[in-house]
Design a protein around this nucleic acid. Structure first.
Length: 226
DNA sequence: AGGTGATCATCC
DNA sequence: GGATGATCACCT
């Protein structure tokens, strides 16, 4: 029996709650919460994340503050294979494409979002039915000085290009640990941006994502030392 | 339209 | 096979 309508009051309490379901399948957790499990994630891409939000008492919905506001912690589920390697990149935040004057790393959405992340690994390749994918041990992560530096460097290089009107020439190959990719309902969605000559253009909305080797390394570092 | 939660699916 | 570019659902 698990408590419904749980809200974490402290970091250890949140971690305990997350650890309590390590080893459970998504089907078991969904059943316990009275939530239906989709056959696949094609039309339910955010389902796993929302399941864990409900279970852990994260404040749902779009908000400018962290999932666990008073704790300053963001929640991220991350699909991994049997070796613990992430199967997908991790979305961090949308990228501002206009009014970039004076925007510094320290006040950027990326920097703020990555201060503290509660990672919930979900073991499950695409061939495994959603209900049978299993929850791994959670990891409360704060970037090391080296990680901060790598993140900041990529962010500054990418944002400089955006500010110079080069957003449409940036690909996901840029950046060592952080990449810029489309983040929209589809490729026809447009938003305001800066063109090559500094004039306004309409362009695809972009988001920052953490590359797989980066998240892989932070997971490995944790589980090798614990 | 733009944000949240992400994974899909094609191309290399 | 794996990463890039595209996409899906829901909310405000």
């Amino acid at each position: 029996m698990i408590e419904l309508n749980f809200t974490p009051d402290s970091e250890p309490q949140l971690l305990d709650r997350a650890e309590a379901v390590a080893g459970w399948t998504l089907g078991e957790l969904a059943d316990a919460l009275g939530i239906a499990v989709p056959d696949n994630l094609l039309r339910h891409k955010g389902w796993s994340g929302q399941l864990l939000e409900r279970y852990l008492g994260a404040s749902a919905g779009s908000k400018p503050h962290p999932d666990f506001e008073q704790l300053g912690i963001e929640l991220k589920t991350i699909p991994v294979d049997l070796q613990g390697k992430p199967l997908e990149t991790t979305f961090v935040s949308v990228c501002p494409l206009t009014n970039l004057g004076g925007l510094r790393w320290e006040e950027s959405p990326v920097c703020h979002k990555l201060r503290a992340i509660l990672w919930i690994p979900i073991l499950g390749e695409r061939q495994i039915p959603v209900a049978q994918r299993t929850l791994g041990m959670p990891l409360l992560w704060r970037p090391s000085p080296q990680e901060w530096q790598a993140l900041q460097q990529d962010w500054e290089e990418i944002m400089e290009r955006v500010a110079l009107g080069e957003v449409e020439s940036i690909t996901a190959r840029h950046g060592e640990v952080l990449q810029l990719r489309p983040k929209a309902a589809n490729s026809r969605v447009l938003t305001d941006g800066i063109g090559p000559d500094g004039s306004p253009i309409q362009t695809l909305p972009r988001g920052f994502y953490l590359k797989i080797p980066f998240t892989h390394a932070l997971l490995q570092r944790h589980f090798h030392n614990n």
